[in-house]
Write a protein that binds this DNA or RNA. Structure first.
Length: 171
DNA sequence: CCCTGATTCGC
DNA sequence: GCGAATCAGG
């Protein structure tokens, strides 16, 4: 599979779109994520919006004093909100949503909604053991590229056990 | 475990 | 130039 000008254009397009190397490789087909990344590097597109790391090259730093300043001249970006559409809001017994004020140590801290909005709250579901997120969000946080299944979204968990279970069990 | 990109290295 | 293997971080 050769890199035609057409493919290169598509690659640059998708990369600019913000798709991950794996996503691009999947879309285009015939190439792996390694191939995409390799090509991206050779094209000089590697420097994307990747705030996840301070600077690349943590492995070797040989007189890169001036090199670092070139990479670190990016304006502060607003907090990235991780797919709030799949989050199942927790309704407290008082009827209030889980907010920073009501967040306990054992409550899921998955953000829901815009941090600047008034309805911003957290998942709030009970966490396994001192974890920051509930099993669902903990797993989701590490698999953003996984097949999103809105239908498999867990039903809204309510802390009020009174009406939590009223559905007929088949067995 | 899964994922992400970065770099190395043989072809 | 290409991309698998490897590396480093989440």
């Amino acid at each position: 599979m050769a890199w035609n000008d057409e493919r290169v254009e598509l690659l640059k397009k998708l990369w600019a779109e913000g798709l991950s190397a794996s996503q691009i490789a999947s879309r285009m087909g015939g190439v792996t994520r390694n191939a995409v990344i390799g090509k991206v590097h050779r094209l000089g597109l590697s420097g994307r919006a990747t705030p996840a790391k301070p600077q690349r090259g943590c492995r070797h730093h040989e007189g890169d004093v001036e090199d670092a300043r070139l990479l670190g001249e990016e304006p502060p970006m607003k907090p990235i909100i991780p797919e709030p559409e799949f989050a199942a809001p927790v309704v407290l017994e008082g009827g209030d949503l889980a907010t920073v004020a009501t967040l306990k140590g054992n409550m899921c801290k998955w953000p829901i909604g815009d941090p600047t909005s008034d309805d911003f709250h957290f998942c709030g579901q009970p966490t396994p053991a001192g974890k920051s997120y509930c099993p669902y969000h903990a797993h989701l946080a590490f698999q953003p590229s996984a097949q999103r299944r809105p239908e498999r979204r867990p039903e809204p968990a309510r802390l009020a056990p009174s009406e939590a279970h009223r559905r007929r069990a088949a067995g």
